[in-house]
C-alpha cells in the first residue's frame, strides 16, 4: 500500500504505523459535565465503516508526522492525506 504523504509524495505503508479512526483527534473536554461518558465513547466506540474512512497514520520511519488519511476500507483506494496538525489547526 502506498500513502501519499502531502510533503514527501507516495511512500510505502511499511514506513508507517497505523492507529485508527481519526475521530481520536477530537478529545473531549475533561471539564465538561458528562466528561466520563464522552471519554468512554472517545476511547471505545468506532463506526468501522465498509467504505470511506478517515484514519490516523504515523510516519514512524519517515518524517514522524501524524497524517489523516482518507481511505476506502473496501477497495483500499486512498482519496487523500493531510498533516494531522493542519487538520487540527483548521478545526480549532
Amino acid at each position: 500500500m502506498l500513502i501519499p504523504h502531502p510533503l514527501l509524495g507516495p511512500r510505502d505503508a511499511q514506513e508507517f504505523t497505523y492507529l485508527g479512526d481519526a475521530r481520536l483527534l477530537e478529545r473531549p473536554d475533561p471539564a465538561a459535565e458528562n466528561a466520563e461518558a464522552r471519554f468512554c465513547d472517545y476511547v471505545y466506540l468506532r463506526d468501522n465503516p465498509a467504505g470511506v474512512h478517515r484514519e490516523l497514520w504515523f510516519h514512524e520511519h519517515g518524517d514522524r508526522s501524524w497524517l489523516v488519511v482518507t481511505r476506502d476500507t473496501v477497495t483500499h483506494e486512498i482519496l487523500g492525506a493531510e498533516l494531522a496538525a493542519d487538520v487540527k489547526g483548521a478545526g480549532a
Binding site: T17, L19, L24, R64, S65, A84, K88, G89
Partner: peptide, 13 residues
C-alpha cells in the same frame, strides 16, 4: 509515538 500524537494531534498549539 504517543507523545508525538499528543503534540501533533491533540495540542498542536
Amino acid at each position: 509515538r504517543n507523545m508525538e500524537f499528543a503534540r501533533q494531534c491533540l495540542w498542536p498549539d
